[in-house]
Amino acid sequence: MEPSHVLVPLDGSPLADDALEHALDVFDCQITVLNVVTPLDADMSEGGVLEPDEARLNAARTRADQLVERARHQTAAKDRPVETAVETGEPAETILAYIDTTDVDHVVMGGHGGPKTGALRRLLGTVATTVVGKAPVPVTVVR
């Protein structure tokens, strides 16, 4: 069954851009791009040395706005409208919450491998692995 609403999470990586291209090429339906602004806290900063502050959060929001604006231009070049959203939170959980609160029925996202433990995490990346494992809709991972 063809989806009617595809979500493409963007993080500024080339694989996320490839995921958007894939969604535009394959699916003829509503597409929403989502960027998740991750709040900087002591657990995520350089060994807990950096304190969260408004300037860092504003810079992250500005970057998010730039990413979704770039996606608008990318989709306009293909004469395709796109919805955009910027949310704040932990990426995988925020993506899953977005799916649960909207009519999204398919996700297309970039996968990032790395030196994590476990074969699936090395192949897909931790955010993609979590979304694939918990999403109530089909997920296409672009590598």
Results as ranks from 00 to 15, higher is better:
2 E>Q: 13
4 S>A: 13
7 L>Y: 08
8 V>E: 07
10 L>C: 04
11 D>N: 14
12 G>H: 10
13 S>H: 12
14 P>H: 11
16 A>S: 15
17 D>V: 13
18 D>Q: 11
19 A>Y: 07
20 L>S: 10
20 L>K: 07
21 E>W: 06
22 H>D: 06
23 A>F: 08
24 L>K: 02
26 V>F: 06
26 V>C: 06
27 F>A: 06
28 D>L: 07
29 C>W: 02
30 Q>K: 14
31 I>D: 04
31 I>W: 05
36 V>Y: 01
37 V>N: 03
38 T>L: 01
39 P>G: 00
41 D>V: 05
42 A>G: 02
42 A>K: 06
42 A>S: 04
43 D>V: 13
45 S>K: 04
45 S>H: 04
45 S>P: 04
46 E>V: 03
47 G>S: 05
49 V>R: 13
49 V>D: 09
50 L>R: 08
51 E>C: 05
51 E>S: 13
52 P>R: 03
54 E>G: 09
56 R>W: 11
57 L>G: 05
57 L>P: 00
60 A>E: 03
60 A>I: 00
60 A>N: 02
61 R>T: 06
62 T>L: 11
62 T>I: 11
64 A>Q: 11
65 D>K: 14
65 D>Q: 14
68 V>H: 13
68 V>F: 10
68 V>Y: 11
70 R>H: 15
70 R>S: 15
73 H>C: 11
76 A>D: 15
79 D>P: 09
79 D>K: 15
81 P>E: 14
81 P>V: 13
83 E>H: 15
84 T>W: 02
87 E>W: 00
88 T>H: 03
89 G>Q: 02
90 E>Y: 01
90 E>F: 00
91 P>A: 13
91 P>V: 12
93 E>Y: 03
95 I>E: 08
96 L>C: 04
97 A>C: 00
97 A>V: 01
97 A>K: 10
98 Y>D: 04
98 Y>W: 08
98 Y>N: 05
98 Y>L: 03
99 I>D: 02
101 T>A: 07
101 T>D: 08
102 T>A: 01
104 V>C: 06
104 V>N: 01
104 V>Q: 02
104 V>G: 02
108 V>C: 07
108 V>E: 00
108 V>W: 00
108 V>A: 10
108 V>N: 00
110 G>W: 03
110 G>Y: 01
111 G>P: 03
112 H>R: 14
112 H>I: 14
113 G>S: 06
113 G>C: 09
113 G>V: 08
113 G>H: 09
115 P>D: 10
118 G>P: 11
118 G>D: 03
118 G>Q: 05
119 A>G: 01
120 L>C: 01
120 L>F: 11
120 L>Y: 10
121 R>T: 03
124 L>A: 02
125 G>I: 09
126 T>F: 06
127 V>R: 04
128 A>Y: 04
128 A>G: 07
129 T>F: 08
130 T>R: 15
131 V>T: 12
131 V>Q: 06
131 V>C: 09
132 V>T: 14
133 G>W: 10
136 P>K: 15
138 P>W: 15
141 V>E: 05
141 V>W: 00
142 V>Y: 08
143 R>T: 12
